[in-house]
Design a protein around this nucleic acid. Sequence first.
DNA 1: TCAGCTTACAGTCGTGTTGACCAGAAGGCG
DNA 2: CGCCTTCTGGTCAACACGACTGTAAGCTGA
Lengths: 235, 235
Amino acid sequence: MPHQLDAPTRLAVSTVIFTLRPGAAGRAVLWTPLVRRTREPQLGLWALPGGWLPVNEELEVAAARTLRATTGLAPKYLEQLYTFGEVNRSPDARVVSVVYWALVQSDEAARAAAGPNVRWVPADTLPGLAFDHNRIVEYALWRLRTKVEYTEIAHAFLGGTFTLAELREVYEAVLQRSLDPANFRRTMIASGRLRETGEFQAGAAHRPPKLYRYDPSATRTADDREPFQSERPAS
Amino acid sequence: MPHQLDAPTRLAVSTVIFTLRPGAAGRAVLWTPLVRRTREPQLGLWALPGGWLPVNEELEVAAARTLRATTGLAPKYLEQLYTFGEVNRSPDARVVSVVYWALVQSDEAARAAAGPNVRWVPADTLPGLAFDHNRIVEYALWRLRTKVEYTEIAHAFLGGTFTLAELREVYEAVLQRSLDPANFRRTMIASGRLRETGEFQAGAAHRPPKLYRYDPSATRTADDREPFQSERPAS
DNA sequence: TCAGCTTACAGTCGTGTTGACCAGAAGGCG
DNA sequence: CGCCTTCTGGTCAACACGACTGTAAGCTGA
Protein backbone atom coordinates (compact mmCIF):
# COMPACT_ATOMS: atom_id res chain seq x y z
CA MET A 1 0.00 0.00 0.00
CA PRO A 2 1.54 3.21 -1.17
CA HIS A 3 -0.27 5.66 1.09
CA GLN A 4 0.39 6.86 4.56
CA LEU A 5 -2.03 5.19 6.90
CA ASP A 6 -2.92 8.38 8.69
CA ALA A 7 -3.58 10.38 5.53
CA PRO A 8 -7.33 10.62 5.03
CA THR A 9 -9.07 9.87 1.77
CA ARG A 10 -9.58 13.06 -0.19
CA LEU A 11 -12.73 13.84 -2.13
CA ALA A 12 -12.63 15.66 -5.45
CA VAL A 13 -15.21 16.74 -8.02
CA SER A 14 -14.37 16.78 -11.72
CA THR A 15 -16.41 17.53 -14.81
CA VAL A 16 -16.24 16.32 -18.37
CA ILE A 17 -17.53 19.15 -20.55
CA PHE A 18 -18.70 18.69 -24.12
CA THR A 19 -19.53 21.07 -26.86
CA LEU A 20 -19.69 20.91 -30.65
CA ARG A 21 -17.43 22.65 -33.13
CA PRO A 22 -17.52 22.65 -36.92
CA GLY A 23 -15.37 19.88 -38.29
CA ALA A 24 -13.41 19.36 -41.46
CA ALA A 25 -15.67 16.87 -43.18
CA GLY A 26 -18.67 19.16 -42.82
CA ARG A 27 -19.74 17.23 -39.76
CA ALA A 28 -19.31 18.81 -36.34
CA VAL A 29 -17.11 17.12 -33.76
CA LEU A 30 -17.18 16.99 -29.98
CA TRP A 31 -14.68 19.12 -28.10
CA THR A 32 -13.80 19.18 -24.44
CA PRO A 33 -11.77 21.64 -22.34
CA LEU A 34 -8.76 20.53 -20.33
CA VAL A 35 -6.73 22.35 -17.69
CA ARG A 36 -3.01 22.13 -17.16
CA ARG A 37 -2.00 20.87 -13.73
CA THR A 38 -0.09 23.57 -11.86
CA ARG A 39 1.11 21.40 -8.98
CA GLU A 40 2.27 17.92 -8.17
CA PRO A 41 1.44 15.20 -8.78
CA GLN A 42 1.40 15.07 -12.57
CA LEU A 43 2.43 18.71 -12.80
CA GLY A 44 2.20 20.03 -16.34
CA LEU A 45 -0.08 17.29 -17.63
CA TRP A 46 -3.52 18.06 -18.95
CA ALA A 47 -6.44 17.02 -16.81
CA LEU A 48 -10.16 17.40 -16.33
CA PRO A 49 -11.44 20.58 -14.70
CA GLY A 50 -12.14 20.01 -11.03
CA GLY A 51 -10.98 20.45 -7.50
CA TRP A 52 -11.44 19.42 -3.91
CA LEU A 53 -14.98 19.40 -2.62
CA PRO A 54 -15.61 22.24 -0.17
CA VAL A 55 -17.34 21.08 2.99
CA ASN A 56 -20.36 23.29 2.48
CA GLU A 57 -20.87 22.98 -1.24
CA GLU A 58 -23.23 20.61 -3.01
CA LEU A 59 -21.61 18.19 -5.44
CA GLU A 60 -23.53 19.51 -8.43
CA VAL A 61 -22.79 23.10 -7.50
CA ALA A 62 -19.10 22.29 -7.24
CA ALA A 63 -19.21 20.75 -10.71
CA ALA A 64 -20.96 23.79 -12.16
CA ARG A 65 -18.54 26.11 -10.41
CA THR A 66 -15.42 24.47 -11.83
CA LEU A 67 -17.12 24.40 -15.20
CA ARG A 68 -17.69 28.12 -15.00
CA ALA A 69 -14.17 28.72 -13.75
CA THR A 70 -12.56 27.00 -16.72
CA THR A 71 -14.95 27.95 -19.49
CA GLY A 72 -16.81 31.00 -18.22
CA LEU A 73 -20.01 29.22 -19.17
CA ALA A 74 -23.07 27.80 -17.49
CA PRO A 75 -23.98 24.19 -18.36
CA LYS A 76 -27.17 23.53 -20.26
CA TYR A 77 -27.07 19.95 -19.03
CA LEU A 78 -25.28 18.58 -16.00
CA GLU A 79 -25.46 15.08 -14.62
CA GLN A 80 -23.43 12.90 -12.33
CA LEU A 81 -21.41 10.39 -14.33
CA TYR A 82 -19.63 8.02 -11.97
CA THR A 83 -17.43 8.01 -8.91
CA PHE A 84 -13.88 6.86 -9.49
CA GLY A 85 -12.07 5.68 -6.42
CA GLU A 86 -9.38 3.16 -7.29
CA VAL A 87 -6.81 3.00 -4.55
CA ASN A 88 -3.87 3.74 -6.82
CA ARG A 89 -5.39 6.17 -9.29
CA SER A 90 -3.38 8.99 -7.75
CA PRO A 91 0.23 8.34 -6.75
CA ASP A 92 0.28 10.43 -3.61
CA ALA A 93 -2.90 10.00 -1.61
CA ARG A 94 -6.17 8.12 -1.90
CA VAL A 95 -8.42 10.32 -3.99
CA VAL A 96 -12.06 9.60 -4.73
CA SER A 97 -13.45 11.70 -7.56
CA VAL A 98 -17.14 12.28 -8.11
CA VAL A 99 -17.26 13.03 -11.82
CA TYR A 100 -20.01 14.96 -13.58
CA TRP A 101 -20.53 15.44 -17.28
CA ALA A 102 -21.95 18.54 -18.87
CA LEU A 103 -23.13 19.90 -22.19
CA VAL A 104 -22.65 23.55 -23.06
CA GLN A 105 -24.19 25.54 -25.86
CA SER A 106 -21.97 25.47 -28.92
CA ASP A 107 -22.13 29.12 -29.94
CA GLU A 108 -21.39 30.17 -26.37
CA ALA A 109 -18.49 27.74 -26.18
CA ALA A 110 -17.05 29.26 -29.33
CA ARG A 111 -16.58 32.49 -27.40
CA ALA A 112 -15.24 30.66 -24.34
CA ALA A 113 -12.06 31.80 -22.73
CA ALA A 114 -8.96 29.74 -23.36
CA GLY A 115 -5.87 30.86 -21.53
CA PRO A 116 -2.45 29.27 -21.32
CA ASN A 117 -3.76 26.76 -18.81
CA VAL A 118 -7.03 25.94 -20.56
CA ARG A 119 -7.06 24.08 -23.85
CA TRP A 120 -9.90 22.69 -25.92
CA VAL A 121 -9.28 19.39 -27.70
CA PRO A 122 -11.38 17.01 -29.82
CA ALA A 123 -12.93 14.54 -27.41
CA ASP A 124 -12.21 11.53 -29.61
CA THR A 125 -8.50 12.12 -30.02
CA LEU A 126 -7.25 13.09 -26.61
CA PRO A 127 -3.63 13.48 -25.60
CA GLY A 128 -2.36 11.50 -22.65
CA LEU A 129 -4.10 12.95 -19.61
CA ALA A 130 -3.25 12.91 -15.94
CA PHE A 131 -4.36 10.07 -13.68
CA ASP A 132 -7.20 7.95 -15.12
CA HIS A 133 -8.79 10.87 -16.91
CA ASN A 134 -8.56 9.33 -20.37
CA ARG A 135 -10.72 6.48 -19.19
CA ILE A 136 -13.14 8.92 -17.59
CA VAL A 137 -13.61 10.90 -20.78
CA GLU A 138 -14.13 7.70 -22.73
CA TYR A 139 -16.84 6.67 -20.33
CA ALA A 140 -18.47 10.09 -20.55
CA LEU A 141 -18.41 9.83 -24.33
CA TRP A 142 -20.04 6.43 -24.16
CA ARG A 143 -22.71 7.77 -21.84
CA LEU A 144 -23.36 10.79 -24.06
CA ARG A 145 -23.69 8.66 -27.19
CA THR A 146 -25.91 6.15 -25.44
CA LYS A 147 -28.12 8.74 -23.81
CA VAL A 148 -28.61 10.77 -26.97
CA GLU A 149 -30.37 7.80 -28.48
CA TYR A 150 -33.09 7.48 -25.87
CA THR A 151 -33.43 10.97 -24.38
CA GLU A 152 -33.76 14.52 -25.62
CA ILE A 153 -30.51 16.02 -24.42
CA ALA A 154 -29.22 16.89 -27.88
CA HIS A 155 -30.92 20.28 -27.82
CA ALA A 156 -28.56 21.28 -25.00
CA PHE A 157 -25.90 21.95 -27.63
CA LEU A 158 -28.18 24.43 -29.37
CA GLY A 159 -29.79 27.72 -28.48
CA GLY A 160 -33.38 28.41 -27.63
CA THR A 161 -34.66 27.94 -31.17
CA PHE A 162 -33.25 25.74 -33.88
CA THR A 163 -34.11 24.12 -37.17
CA LEU A 164 -34.51 20.40 -37.58
CA ALA A 165 -31.40 20.36 -39.73
CA GLU A 166 -29.39 21.91 -36.91
CA LEU A 167 -30.75 19.37 -34.48
CA ARG A 168 -29.96 16.59 -36.91
CA GLU A 169 -26.40 17.85 -37.22
CA VAL A 170 -26.05 17.45 -33.46
CA TYR A 171 -27.25 13.87 -33.59
CA GLU A 172 -24.98 13.10 -36.53
CA ALA A 173 -21.97 14.57 -34.76
CA VAL A 174 -22.59 12.70 -31.53
CA LEU A 175 -23.54 9.40 -33.12
CA GLN A 176 -20.93 9.73 -35.87
CA ARG A 177 -23.21 8.60 -38.64
CA SER A 178 -25.55 10.20 -41.15
CA LEU A 179 -29.27 10.27 -40.53
CA ASP A 180 -31.98 10.43 -43.14
CA PRO A 181 -33.51 13.93 -42.95
CA ALA A 182 -37.05 12.76 -43.65
CA ASN A 183 -36.99 9.94 -41.12
CA PHE A 184 -35.33 12.16 -38.56
CA ARG A 185 -38.09 14.70 -38.96
CA ARG A 186 -40.75 12.05 -38.50
CA THR A 187 -39.33 10.63 -35.29
CA MET A 188 -38.58 14.00 -33.74
CA ILE A 189 -42.06 15.32 -34.46
CA ALA A 190 -43.53 12.08 -33.14
CA SER A 191 -41.64 12.51 -29.87
CA GLY A 192 -43.97 15.40 -29.11
CA ARG A 193 -41.30 17.47 -27.41
CA LEU A 194 -40.78 20.03 -30.16
CA ARG A 195 -42.90 23.10 -30.59
CA GLU A 196 -43.01 25.23 -33.71
CA THR A 197 -42.19 28.84 -33.02
CA GLY A 198 -44.06 30.01 -36.11
CA GLU A 199 -40.91 31.65 -37.37
CA PHE A 200 -38.56 30.67 -40.14
CA GLN A 201 -34.84 30.92 -40.58
CA ALA A 202 -34.24 33.07 -43.63
CA GLY A 203 -31.11 34.04 -45.50
CA ALA A 204 -30.03 30.73 -46.94
CA ALA A 205 -30.12 29.85 -50.60
CA HIS A 206 -33.00 27.46 -50.26
CA ARG A 207 -36.46 27.08 -48.80
CA PRO A 208 -36.44 28.61 -45.30
CA PRO A 209 -36.87 26.00 -42.57
CA LYS A 210 -39.18 26.28 -39.59
CA LEU A 211 -37.71 27.19 -36.24
CA TYR A 212 -38.54 24.91 -33.33
CA ARG A 213 -38.30 25.18 -29.60
CA TYR A 214 -37.72 22.35 -27.13
CA ASP A 215 -40.70 21.79 -24.83
CA PRO A 216 -39.82 19.63 -21.84
CA SER A 217 -43.35 19.66 -20.46
CA ALA A 218 -44.87 17.95 -23.46
CA THR A 219 -46.14 14.37 -23.40
CA ARG A 220 -43.70 12.97 -20.98
CA THR A 221 -44.85 10.07 -18.88
CA ALA A 222 -43.91 9.97 -15.24
CA ASP A 223 -42.06 6.68 -15.21
CA ASP A 224 -39.55 7.27 -17.95
CA ARG A 225 -38.18 10.30 -16.22
CA GLU A 226 -35.14 9.73 -14.10
CA PRO A 227 -35.28 10.59 -10.44
CA PHE A 228 -33.45 13.72 -9.31
CA GLN A 229 -31.70 14.46 -12.56
CA SER A 230 -31.90 18.15 -13.23
CA GLU A 231 -31.69 19.16 -16.83
CA ARG A 232 -31.17 22.85 -16.18
CA PRO A 233 -29.09 22.99 -13.07
CA ALA A 234 -28.53 26.26 -11.33
CA SER A 235 -25.16 27.54 -12.31
CA MET B 1 -24.20 25.95 7.71
CA PRO B 2 -24.54 23.38 10.41
CA HIS B 3 -21.06 21.87 10.28
CA GLN B 4 -17.84 22.73 11.93
CA LEU B 5 -15.60 24.34 9.37
CA ASP B 6 -12.58 22.30 10.36
CA ALA B 7 -14.39 18.94 10.25
CA PRO B 8 -13.49 17.16 7.03
CA THR B 9 -15.97 15.60 4.67
CA ARG B 10 -16.38 11.91 5.43
CA LEU B 11 -16.72 9.26 2.76
CA ALA B 12 -19.01 6.27 3.20
CA VAL B 13 -20.00 3.29 1.06
CA SER B 14 -23.51 1.84 1.27
CA THR B 15 -25.24 -0.94 -0.62
CA VAL B 16 -28.83 -1.56 -1.58
CA ILE B 17 -29.32 -5.32 -1.71
CA PHE B 18 -32.20 -7.00 -3.48
CA THR B 19 -33.48 -10.52 -3.50
CA LEU B 20 -36.80 -12.19 -4.30
CA ARG B 21 -39.14 -13.93 -1.88
CA PRO B 22 -42.43 -15.70 -2.56
CA GLY B 23 -45.31 -13.29 -2.18
CA ALA B 24 -48.92 -13.65 -1.22
CA ALA B 25 -50.52 -13.23 -4.64
CA GLY B 26 -48.41 -16.01 -6.12
CA ARG B 27 -46.03 -13.42 -7.47
CA ALA B 28 -42.64 -12.98 -5.83
CA VAL B 29 -41.70 -9.63 -4.30
CA LEU B 30 -38.42 -7.80 -3.84
CA TRP B 31 -36.89 -7.78 -0.37
CA THR B 32 -33.97 -5.81 0.96
CA PRO B 33 -31.96 -6.10 4.20
CA LEU B 34 -31.62 -3.20 6.61
CA VAL B 35 -29.37 -2.72 9.62
CA ARG B 36 -30.26 -0.96 12.84
CA ARG B 37 -28.07 2.01 13.65
CA THR B 38 -26.13 1.37 16.85
CA ARG B 39 -24.78 4.88 17.34
CA GLU B 40 -25.68 8.50 16.85
CA PRO B 41 -26.89 10.12 14.75
CA GLN B 42 -30.23 8.47 14.05
CA LEU B 43 -29.52 5.77 16.64
CA GLY B 44 -32.06 2.96 16.51
CA LEU B 45 -33.35 3.79 13.06
CA TRP B 46 -33.05 1.29 10.23
CA ALA B 47 -30.55 2.11 7.51
CA LEU B 48 -28.74 0.68 4.52
CA PRO B 49 -25.76 -1.59 5.16
CA GLY B 50 -22.53 0.31 4.82
CA GLY B 51 -19.68 2.03 6.58
CA TRP B 52 -16.75 4.37 6.22
CA LEU B 53 -14.42 3.73 3.33
CA PRO B 54 -11.04 2.35 4.47
CA VAL B 55 -8.11 4.16 2.90
CA ASN B 56 -6.78 1.05 1.21
CA GLU B 57 -9.97 -0.62 0.09
CA GLU B 58 -11.53 -0.37 -3.35
CA LEU B 59 -15.05 1.03 -3.46
CA GLU B 60 -16.55 -2.11 -4.93
CA VAL B 61 -14.75 -4.33 -2.46
CA ALA B 62 -16.05 -2.24 0.40
CA ALA B 63 -19.58 -2.65 -0.93
CA ALA B 64 -19.18 -6.41 -1.26
CA ARG B 65 -17.67 -6.61 2.20
CA THR B 66 -20.54 -4.82 3.94
CA LEU B 67 -22.92 -6.94 1.92
CA ARG B 68 -21.26 -10.07 3.21
CA ALA B 69 -21.16 -8.71 6.73
CA THR B 70 -24.90 -8.12 6.90
CA THR B 71 -26.17 -11.04 4.85
CA GLY B 72 -23.38 -13.59 4.87
CA LEU B 73 -23.75 -13.73 1.09
CA ALA B 74 -21.75 -12.89 -1.99
CA PRO B 75 -23.44 -10.71 -4.61
CA LYS B 76 -24.25 -12.22 -7.98
CA TYR B 77 -24.45 -8.69 -9.37
CA LEU B 78 -22.89 -5.53 -8.02
CA GLU B 79 -22.84 -2.10 -9.61
CA GLN B 80 -22.32 1.46 -8.53
CA LEU B 81 -25.63 3.27 -8.24
CA TYR B 82 -24.99 6.93 -7.45
CA THR B 83 -23.09 9.15 -5.08
CA PHE B 84 -25.20 11.07 -2.61
CA GLY B 85 -23.57 14.09 -1.10
CA GLU B 86 -26.14 16.69 -0.07
CA VAL B 87 -24.68 19.02 2.49
CA ASN B 88 -27.40 18.40 5.05
CA ARG B 89 -28.17 14.74 4.51
CA SER B 90 -26.51 13.89 7.80
CA PRO B 91 -27.12 16.17 10.77
CA ASP B 92 -23.64 15.96 12.26
CA ALA B 93 -20.99 16.11 9.60
CA ARG B 94 -20.76 16.33 5.83
CA VAL B 95 -21.06 12.77 4.59
CA VAL B 96 -20.73 11.73 0.97
CA SER B 97 -21.98 8.21 0.32
CA VAL B 98 -20.99 6.18 -2.71
CA VAL B 99 -23.93 3.79 -3.03
CA TYR B 100 -23.84 0.43 -4.77
CA TRP B 101 -26.72 -1.87 -5.56
CA ALA B 102 -26.55 -5.65 -5.56
CA LEU B 103 -28.57 -8.70 -6.46
CA VAL B 104 -28.24 -11.89 -4.45
CA GLN B 105 -29.49 -15.35 -5.28
CA SER B 106 -32.94 -15.92 -3.84
CA ASP B 107 -32.50 -19.40 -2.41
CA GLU B 108 -29.29 -18.34 -0.72
CA ALA B 109 -30.92 -15.23 0.67
CA ALA B 110 -33.66 -17.40 2.16
CA ARG B 111 -31.02 -18.94 4.40
CA ALA B 112 -29.42 -15.58 5.13
CA ALA B 113 -28.67 -14.62 8.69
CA ALA B 114 -31.03 -12.13 10.29
CA GLY B 115 -30.07 -11.09 13.79
CA PRO B 116 -31.61 -8.46 16.03
CA ASN B 117 -29.81 -5.74 14.11
CA VAL B 118 -30.54 -7.06 10.62
CA ARG B 119 -34.04 -7.08 9.21
CA TRP B 120 -35.37 -7.94 5.78
CA VAL B 121 -38.28 -5.87 4.50
CA PRO B 122 -40.25 -5.67 1.23
CA ALA B 123 -38.48 -3.12 -0.92
CA ASP B 124 -41.70 -1.43 -2.03
CA THR B 125 -43.12 -0.77 1.42
CA LEU B 126 -40.22 0.47 3.47
CA PRO B 127 -40.43 1.89 6.97
CA GLY B 128 -38.98 5.32 7.61
CA LEU B 129 -35.24 4.95 7.23
CA ALA B 130 -32.34 6.97 8.51
CA PHE B 131 -30.96 9.92 6.54
CA ASP B 132 -32.00 9.96 2.86
CA HIS B 133 -32.00 6.19 2.58
CA ASN B 134 -35.64 5.92 1.52
CA ARG B 135 -34.87 8.00 -1.53
CA ILE B 136 -31.80 5.90 -2.23
CA VAL B 137 -33.73 2.64 -2.20
CA GLU B 138 -36.36 4.17 -4.46
CA TYR B 139 -33.70 5.15 -6.94
CA ALA B 140 -32.14 1.69 -6.77
CA LEU B 141 -35.56 0.17 -7.43
CA TRP B 142 -36.05 2.42 -10.41
CA ARG B 143 -32.64 1.45 -11.75
CA LEU B 144 -33.28 -2.26 -11.24
CA ARG B 145 -36.64 -2.10 -13.00
CA THR B 146 -35.24 -0.05 -15.85
CA LYS B 147 -32.17 -2.18 -16.30
CA VAL B 148 -34.04 -5.47 -16.24
CA GLU B 149 -35.80 -4.39 -19.41
CA TYR B 150 -32.68 -3.91 -21.52
CA THR B 151 -30.07 -6.17 -19.94
CA GLU B 152 -29.82 -9.75 -18.75
CA ILE B 153 -29.36 -9.23 -15.04
CA ALA B 154 -32.51 -11.08 -14.02
CA HIS B 155 -30.72 -14.43 -13.88
CA ALA B 156 -28.71 -13.10 -10.93
CA PHE B 157 -31.69 -13.88 -8.71
CA LEU B 158 -31.59 -17.53 -9.79
CA GLY B 159 -29.15 -20.39 -9.48
CA GLY B 160 -26.96 -21.89 -12.14
CA THR B 161 -29.80 -23.57 -13.99
CA PHE B 162 -33.41 -22.50 -14.24
CA THR B 163 -36.53 -22.97 -16.28
CA LEU B 164 -38.00 -20.28 -18.46
CA ALA B 165 -40.97 -20.12 -16.11
CA GLU B 166 -38.67 -19.35 -13.20
CA LEU B 167 -36.92 -16.67 -15.20
CA ARG B 168 -40.26 -15.23 -16.21
CA GLU B 169 -41.32 -15.11 -12.56
CA VAL B 170 -38.28 -12.95 -11.87
CA TYR B 171 -39.22 -10.53 -14.62
CA GLU B 172 -42.83 -10.43 -13.47
CA ALA B 173 -41.80 -9.75 -9.89
CA VAL B 174 -39.41 -6.97 -10.82
CA LEU B 175 -41.61 -5.35 -13.45
CA GLN B 176 -44.80 -5.96 -11.46
CA ARG B 177 -46.81 -7.12 -14.40
CA SER B 178 -47.67 -10.40 -16.08
CA LEU B 179 -45.84 -11.51 -19.17
CA ASP B 180 -47.10 -13.83 -21.87
CA PRO B 181 -45.21 -17.12 -21.50
CA ALA B 182 -44.97 -17.80 -25.21
CA ASN B 183 -43.78 -14.32 -26.11
CA PHE B 184 -41.37 -14.31 -23.21
CA ARG B 185 -39.88 -17.56 -24.45
CA ARG B 186 -39.47 -16.16 -27.93
CA THR B 187 -37.64 -13.01 -26.89
CA MET B 188 -35.39 -14.77 -24.39
CA ILE B 189 -34.35 -17.41 -26.90
CA ALA B 190 -33.80 -14.69 -29.49
CA SER B 191 -31.44 -12.89 -27.14
CA GLY B 192 -29.00 -15.73 -27.66
CA ARG B 193 -27.74 -15.70 -24.09
CA LEU B 194 -29.47 -18.85 -22.88
CA ARG B 195 -28.08 -22.34 -23.34
CA GLU B 196 -30.08 -25.54 -22.93
CA THR B 197 -28.54 -27.86 -20.40
CA GLY B 198 -30.23 -30.89 -21.95
CA GLU B 199 -31.89 -31.66 -18.65
CA PHE B 200 -35.47 -31.26 -17.55
CA GLN B 201 -37.08 -30.33 -14.28
CA ALA B 202 -39.26 -33.28 -13.31
CA GLY B 203 -41.70 -33.81 -10.47
CA ALA B 204 -44.42 -31.32 -11.32
CA ALA B 205 -47.89 -32.27 -12.44
CA HIS B 206 -47.36 -31.13 -15.99
CA ARG B 207 -45.00 -31.41 -18.90
CA PRO B 208 -41.42 -31.14 -17.55
CA PRO B 209 -39.72 -27.92 -18.66
CA LYS B 210 -36.22 -27.63 -20.05
CA LEU B 211 -33.46 -26.35 -17.81
CA TYR B 212 -31.38 -23.47 -19.13
CA ARG B 213 -28.09 -21.91 -18.19
CA TYR B 214 -27.06 -18.28 -18.65
CA ASP B 215 -24.23 -17.84 -21.13
CA PRO B 216 -22.65 -14.40 -20.90
CA SER B 217 -20.20 -15.05 -23.72
CA ALA B 218 -22.87 -15.56 -26.34
CA THR B 219 -23.58 -13.10 -29.14
CA ARG B 220 -22.80 -9.95 -27.33
CA THR B 221 -21.64 -7.05 -29.41
CA ALA B 222 -18.83 -4.87 -28.14
CA ASP B 223 -20.63 -1.56 -28.11
CA ASP B 224 -23.68 -2.42 -26.05
CA ARG B 225 -21.57 -3.49 -23.14
CA GLU B 226 -20.99 -0.91 -20.50
CA PRO B 227 -17.44 0.07 -19.70
CA PHE B 228 -15.96 -1.33 -16.49
CA GLN B 229 -19.12 -2.80 -15.10
CA SER B 230 -18.37 -6.20 -13.64
CA GLU B 231 -21.25 -8.60 -13.51
CA ARG B 232 -19.58 -11.11 -11.25
CA PRO B 233 -17.51 -9.03 -8.89
CA ALA B 234 -15.03 -10.70 -6.61
CA SER B 235 -16.56 -10.97 -3.21
C1' DT C 1 -36.79 37.10 -65.38
C1' DC C 2 -36.39 32.59 -65.27
C1' DA C 3 -33.91 28.27 -65.35
C1' DG C 4 -31.54 25.78 -62.04
C1' DC C 5 -29.89 24.61 -57.55
C1' DT C 6 -30.42 23.42 -52.76
C1' DT C 7 -32.79 22.18 -48.91
C1' DA C 8 -37.47 21.62 -46.59
C1' DC C 9 -41.11 18.71 -46.16
C1' DA C 10 -44.55 14.92 -47.19
C1' DG C 11 -45.65 10.33 -48.38
C1' DT C 12 -44.94 5.18 -49.67
C1' DC C 13 -43.02 0.65 -49.16
C1' DG C 14 -40.91 -3.23 -47.01
C1' DT C 15 -38.92 -5.31 -42.92
C1' DG C 16 -38.33 -6.50 -38.27
C1' DT C 17 -40.17 -6.40 -33.56
C1' DT C 18 -43.70 -7.22 -30.30
C1' DG C 19 -48.19 -8.17 -28.10
C1' DA C 20 -52.42 -11.12 -28.46
C1' DC C 21 -53.92 -15.34 -29.38
C1' DC C 22 -54.25 -20.39 -30.78
C1' DA C 23 -53.03 -25.32 -30.75
C1' DG C 24 -50.51 -29.40 -29.98
C1' DA C 25 -47.11 -31.88 -26.60
C1' DA C 26 -46.20 -34.14 -22.42
C1' DG C 27 -46.17 -34.94 -17.94
C1' DG C 28 -49.09 -36.17 -13.28
C1' DC C 29 -53.61 -37.28 -11.09
C1' DG C 30 -58.24 -39.10 -9.98
C1' DC D 1 -57.83 -43.57 -19.39
C1' DG D 2 -59.87 -39.10 -19.55
C1' DC D 3 -58.59 -34.61 -17.64
C1' DC D 4 -55.89 -31.23 -15.66
C1' DT D 5 -51.78 -28.42 -15.89
C1' DT D 6 -47.93 -26.14 -18.01
C1' DC D 7 -44.63 -26.32 -21.81
C1' DT D 8 -43.71 -25.17 -26.40
C1' DG D 9 -44.19 -23.82 -31.16
C1' DG D 10 -46.84 -21.22 -34.32
C1' DT D 11 -49.90 -17.44 -36.64
C1' DC D 12 -51.59 -12.76 -37.10
C1' DA D 13 -51.97 -7.81 -36.73
C1' DA D 14 -50.16 -3.40 -35.10
C1' DC D 15 -46.41 -0.69 -34.92
C1' DA D 16 -41.73 1.34 -35.50
C1' DC D 17 -38.25 2.38 -38.51
C1' DG D 18 -34.98 2.57 -42.46
C1' DA D 19 -34.84 3.28 -47.55
C1' DC D 20 -36.63 5.73 -50.95
C1' DT D 21 -39.52 8.95 -54.09
C1' DG D 22 -41.64 13.16 -55.09
C1' DT D 23 -43.12 17.98 -54.40
C1' DA D 24 -42.52 22.81 -52.25
C1' DA D 25 -40.13 27.00 -51.76
C1' DG D 26 -36.68 29.88 -51.22
C1' DC D 27 -32.04 32.04 -53.47
C1' DT D 28 -28.56 32.70 -57.30
C1' DG D 29 -26.75 33.76 -61.57
C1' DA D 30 -26.91 34.24 -66.56
